[in-house]
Design a protein around this nucleic acid. Structure first.
Length: 423
DNA sequence: TCTGGGGTCCTAGGACCC
DNA sequence: TCTGGGGTCCTAGGACCC
């Protein structure tokens, strides 16, 4: 049996943690750049505020109902997430952190009749230790556990936020009442197709044949989905030590950028950030790609973004910020066209290898250890002090393009100077 | 005026090899 | 005039997730 533990309205719940006066009140959290709404409490949902809807469109309703609005505060959410996951690791042996607010756990060894009670125990302990409310879904496969979790979230009071689908009847009933589009792994494209074929519930999809899925539902992906719906676990628990295969840092600009120097500053900054992430997992990258998003054809009301990118392969994998920046600069110069209006830029690192297994190039001077020590020192300073306390000159100092975050709460748990104050 | 950021996995098709 | 069969590796792009 597998369980998924999913925090309820996670970002909004983190904000409430330090503003208890907001309990029972509508709260929303915005994406970077204060662009869209990415987290809503139940009270906000009840007002009809849409998930991932643009902030400016919802501004009126938000104001009208005095909804508390926050810019996203990733330092805070990251730290609270870590506390939730640590709690789960104390209570279960096999925990797979699936995202910032979700984890799968393997319930191997727990008797079926105690399953639900154990789920409730997880839920209560996490809430008691961290203050974050979660929902628990339990079932034979990850996909079915997700279905159970959905049901728990929709009926918080009746289920105590804990649902276990253990018998064939329970599973059938749950799937009959789940629209296909709500299933994990069925996105908008497949939903449209399935609806057209008259397959509108999870139960109908479960009863399709594997051959059919192979042909019509994305090959092996579809077959796996059908098997999972039949209670056959095919999506394994992932190894927590696995390293990322691609690392990206991309951002929308706070306001449009027109000049090459500004664009270069931004790309240098993102490259340095991506390199930091790379070093954190003790890896180096061989491929660096840069892309930009422009909006040229658009008039005032015409949002028509276009994306362009290019990449280069390094002679030798590297995790050194200045080396990666040096390779990124020609790429952005290549992409730049005068007169374009730039909305966004991004850097992606791939061809990732462990940094103790770098293939040396015959013609490249293997950089001395001291450069890696330098990077370590820079990372330490930046981690323990303010972000970017030490940075590369190419990253610029003016940073007109930096994102907007007008309503960010304090980083209560990760910065001494922002500790919560009790008067 | 204004619509996020960071990932994974899979497939098809081309280049190339013997 | 005729031109195989079986592979591997790589890339671009699609679909999906939170």
């Amino acid at each position: 049996m597998k369980a998924i533990i999913d925090c309820n309205s996670f970002y909004a719940a983190c904000e409430r943690l330090f503003k208890p006066s907001l309990l029972g009140k509508p709260v929303v959290v915005l994406s970077n750049n204060d662009g869209c709404i990415v987290s809503r409490t139940d009270e906000a949902k009840a007002l009809g505020i849409k998930m991932a809807g643009p902030y400016y469109e919802a501004k009126e309703i938000l104001k009208q109902h005095q909804v508390a609005v926050f810019s996203s505060n990733y330092h805070l959410y990251g730290d609270i997430s870590w506390r939730v996951m640590e709690t789960l690791r104390r209570l279960c042996q096999d925990v797979e952190v699936y995202s910032v607010d979700e984890a799968f756990v393997d319930l191997e060894g727990i008797p079926v009749e105690e399953m639900w009670a154990f789920g409730l125990h997880l839920r209560n302990t996490v809430e008691q230790w961290t203050g974050i409310p979660v929902s628990v879904g339990i079932a034979p496969s990850k996909t079915l556990a997700k279905v159970a979790n959905h049901i728990a979230k929709k009926n918080k009071v009746a289920t105590q936020c804990t649902v276990a689908l253990l018998t064939p009847e329970q599973i059938r009933h749950a799937l009959e009442n789940t629209p296909v589009g709500e299933l994990w792994g069925v996105g908008s494209r497949s939903t449209e197709k399935l609806r057209y074929l008259g397959i509108d519930t999870g139960w109908k999809l479960r009863n399709m044949s594997r051959e059919w899925a192979q042909k019509n539902l994305g090959g092996v992906v579809g077959v796996r989905l059908i098997r999972e719906l039949n209670g056959e676990p095919c999506i394994d628990m992932k190894d927590p030590l696995e390293k990322k295969k691609m690392i990206a840092t991309t951002r929308m600009f706070g306001k449009p950028v027109y000049t090459l120097p500004e664009l270069k500053e931004a790309v240098a900054t993102y490259t340095a950030r991506a390199a930091e992430k790379l070093r954190r997992q003790f890896c180096a990258a061989r491929v660096i790609s840069v892309f930009v998003v422009t909006n040229d054809t658009g008039g005032a009301y015409n949002y028509d973004p276009r994306s362009r990118g290019t990449y280069t392969t390094l002679p030798m994998a590297s995790s050194l910020s200045h080396v990666l920046i040096a390779h990124a600069m020609p790429l952005i110069e290549q992409l730049y066209r005068e007169g374009s209006k730039y909305l966004k830029a991004g850097v992606m690192l791939s061809g990732i290898v462990p940094d103790n297994a770098i293939q040396c190039n015959l013609f490249e001077d293997p950089a001395g250890r001291h450069l890696h020590e330098l990077m370590k020192a820079v990372d330490n300073v930046n981690f323990s002090m303010r972000n970017d306390m030490v940075k590369f000159a190419a990253s610029g100092t003016r940073r007109n393009w930096k994102m907007r975050q007008e309503m960010r709460s304090k980083r209560f748990t990760t910065r001494w100077e922002e500790l919560y104050e009790v008067k």
